[in-house]
Amino acid sequence: MNRTVKAAIFAGMAAVGATSSPALAAEMVFVSWGGAYQDAIRAAWLDPFKAETGVSVLEETGPETAKIKAMVETGTVTWDVVTDGGLGVARGAAEGLFEEITPEMVDQSHVYPEIINKHGVPSEIFSTNFAFSTAAFPDGGPQPASWADFWDVEKFPGKRALYGGPNTVLEAALMADGVAAADVYSVLATPEGQDRAFGKIEALKPHIAVWWTKGAQPAQLLGSGEVVMSNGWNGRIEAGIKEGLPIKAVWNGAVAEVGYFMIVKGAKNRDTAIAFLKHAVSPEAQAEFHKYVAYGPVTPGAWDFIPQEEWARLPSSPENLAQSLFLNVDWWLANEPAMIERYNTLMQQ
């Protein structure tokens, strides 16, 4: 009864409204994290791909694992390519949300071998570093240069913003507390180490004005004067600097991650998606990306196309990589839910 009534209602409604526009020959739905990052993907990769192939690309933002899972579980997959960091890939892969990428599909022989992932094609290398407001700490005066300075509210007074999730923040807290970058994960593996990280964040909490959740926020908050320091994704911070906001990035203690493009299992436009991944990972395309956002290439070959003076802005340049720590995907995959729970409690209290 209930079903027939519903069906009747929908049939009526469908008759009232025009039916959906007919599917185009080739289209692809691309979902990423918005802002300067997605603008750059569009300019560097999507637009040339569209021009080359005639494919029409629909964009959306916010490819959270839960949303992908809901689509896959309910068989209503409307996304084709989604993007996330290594942790997101691992999380989704564990749930069986992503197509496996074989060499036959996308040739990745030219990519840094250590970042190759069965379920995603590396797209860029990005960092979570921090930035400060030069309006608050002008050139010539003392300026923060490490996580320890980020935590030092005596020397650098003012409100801070921190990411509203634990990953990269626990690492930063330990480094601020004097743990060497190389030892961060061995300390974090112990309960005492976790307490130490959370204790350090707890201590800074009175000075945290905003727990940011979206990538565009840190530059916005720094630019608007809401906070004097914030951690953030380096490309997003760079975008603010480019727009003339009075902010400066600090690379010391940056936590680097690899960004990946994945194909959602059951994607309707799988072939188009594969063609796009092939396009994006080519050294030529890789070398384009930095022009639009300060993220580094995933192929050594790309450096040949990038002018030397640009290297300092990019997380995967040898100099910046030396100051950075790579996010330990395995540790996070195992510990993320508990860390999130504890972090939420800390934020909400």
Partner: peptide, 21 residues
């Protein structure tokens, strides 16, 4: 809604939340 069917308020919301566009 999804990418194809999303409405104006949803796009604005995404703009306000994800992009501050």
């Amino acid at each position: 809604t999804n990418a194809k069917s999303r409405t104006l308020p949803r796009v604005i919301y995404e703009g306000a939340l994800d992009d501050i566009d």
